[in-house]
Each structure stands twice: as structure tokens, then as C-alpha cells.
Measured scan of single mutants.
Amino acid sequence: VTLFVALYDYEAITEDDLSFHKGEKFQILNSSEGDWWEARSLTTGETGYIPSNYVAPVD
């Protein structure tokens, strides 16, 4: 499982989006939707859509 880490803070715009803070880690559930990925936060356990350009793979 490839994990991703937030590079910036993000505040949800719609109820389907997931708010997060810089440094938060995610498991990507679906990355086939283009620039918005469905993800689960490993910090909160919540799922929602995140902007793919706000995250990077964890080394």
C-alpha cells in the first residue's frame, strides 16, 4: 500500500471533500477520478476527496 502525505493544509469546499493538515498521511482508495482522489486519513479515519496536487508519496 502506497501512502501519501499532505504537503499543505486543505479546507474542504464541499461535503465530499476531506479537510486535512500538512503532514497528515493518507491511504488512497481511488485515484482514477483525475485530479481529485478518494482517500482515507490515517489520522482521523475519515474518507473523502482530496486534491492530488496537495499530496506526495511517502518514501
Rank of each mutant, 00 (worst) to 15 (best):
L29H: 05
W36N: 06
D35S: 10
E24F: 03
L7Y: 04
G23W: 05
Q27V: 15
S32F: 10
L29S: 05
L3P: 06
H21A: 11
E24Y: 05
Y54K: 08
D9A: 06
E38N: 09
D59Q: 13
D17C: 14
I13G: 11
S32V: 10
V58S: 07
L7P: 00
A56F: 08
S41I: 06
V5N: 03
G48L: 02
G34R: 12
T43Q: 10
G48F: 03
F26V: 03
G23C: 06
P57N: 05
S32L: 11
V58W: 13
P51Y: 07
Y54S: 11
E38M: 15
F26T: 00
S52K: 14
V55K: 00
F26R: 00
W36V: 08
N30T: 08
D17G: 15
L29K: 05
P51S: 05
I50G: 00
V1S: 14
Y8L: 09
F20R: 00
D9N: 07
D9T: 06
W37Y: 09
D9C: 08
D16I: 14
Y49E: 03
S52Y: 08
I13P: 08
F4L: 04
G23V: 00
T44L: 02
T47I: 14
S31F: 15
Y8P: 00
P51I: 03
D9G: 05
L42Y: 06
A6L: 01
W37P: 01
S31K: 12
Y8Q: 09
S52T: 07
W36I: 08
S41C: 07
E46Q: 14
T43L: 12
I28Y: 03
F4I: 04
V5C: 07
L7I: 10
I28A: 03
E11V: 14
F20Q: 00
F4R: 04
I13Q: 15
A6S: 05
K25Q: 12
Y49A: 05
S31W: 12
E15M: 11
A39S: 03
K22M: 08
Q27L: 14
S52N: 06
D59G: 12
K25R: 13
Y49W: 14
P51L: 07
D17E: 15
N30S: 11
Y54H: 09
D59S: 13
L3F: 09
L29T: 07
T14C: 15
Y49V: 07
A6T: 03
E15L: 11
T43G: 07
H21P: 06
V58T: 07
V5S: 04
I50L: 07
V58D: 10
Q27S: 08
V55W: 01
Y49I: 09
L18G: 00
V1Y: 12
G48N: 01
Y54G: 06
N30C: 09
K22W: 05
V58G: 05
D16M: 15
D9S: 08
P57E: 08
A12G: 12
S41T: 03
Y10H: 06
F4M: 09
V1M: 12
E38F: 15
I13D: 09
T44R: 04
T43I: 09
K22A: 11
G48A: 02
T14N: 14
I13N: 10
S19K: 04
T44K: 03
V58F: 12
N30I: 06
S31I: 11
D59K: 11
T47C: 10
Y10M: 03
E15T: 12
A6E: 01
G23S: 03
R40I: 12
E24M: 06
T44N: 06
T47K: 09
P57A: 09
W36P: 05
F4H: 07
Y10T: 01
E33Y: 12
V5I: 13
N30A: 08
F4D: 00
F26S: 00
S19Y: 03
Y49M: 14
G23Y: 05
V58I: 13
T44W: 03
S19Q: 04
R40C: 08
L3V: 14
Q27T: 10
S31V: 10
W36T: 06
A12P: 05
Y54R: 07
L42T: 07
L7W: 03
V1G: 14
T44A: 03
G48D: 00
Y8T: 06
G23H: 04
E11T: 13
E46M: 14
V55H: 01
P51K: 07
E46C: 12
N53G: 10
Y8A: 09
P51N: 09
F26P: 00
F4Y: 15
R40V: 11
R40M: 12
G45N: 09
I28P: 04
W36L: 08
G45H: 07
F26W: 01
V58E: 10
R40H: 07
D17H: 15
A39Y: 01
G23P: 00
A39V: 12
A12D: 02
H21C: 12
D16E: 11
I28Q: 02
S32D: 11
Y54N: 03
T47S: 09
N30G: 10
S31A: 13
Y54A: 13
E15D: 15
V58K: 04
S52G: 07
F4C: 09
F26Y: 01
I50V: 09
E38Q: 14
D17A: 15
K25W: 14
E33R: 15
K22H: 06
G45L: 07
E46V: 10
T44Y: 03
E24K: 01
A12Q: 05
A56N: 06
L42S: 04
V5G: 03
T43K: 13
S52D: 02
S19R: 04
K25I: 15
T47Q: 10
G45S: 05
G34S: 14
I28R: 04
L7S: 03
D17Y: 15
E15P: 13
I13T: 14
P57C: 06
T47G: 03
D16H: 15
S32P: 10
K22R: 10
L18T: 02
T44H: 04
D9R: 03
P57G: 05
L7H: 03
S32K: 11
T14Q: 13
T2S: 11
V58L: 13
K22G: 04
Y10W: 11
R40K: 12
D35W: 11
G23F: 04
K25H: 13
P51W: 07
S41D: 03
W36S: 06
D9P: 06
Y49R: 15
E38T: 11
I50F: 01
G34T: 14
L42R: 03
A6G: 04
E38P: 06
W37F: 07
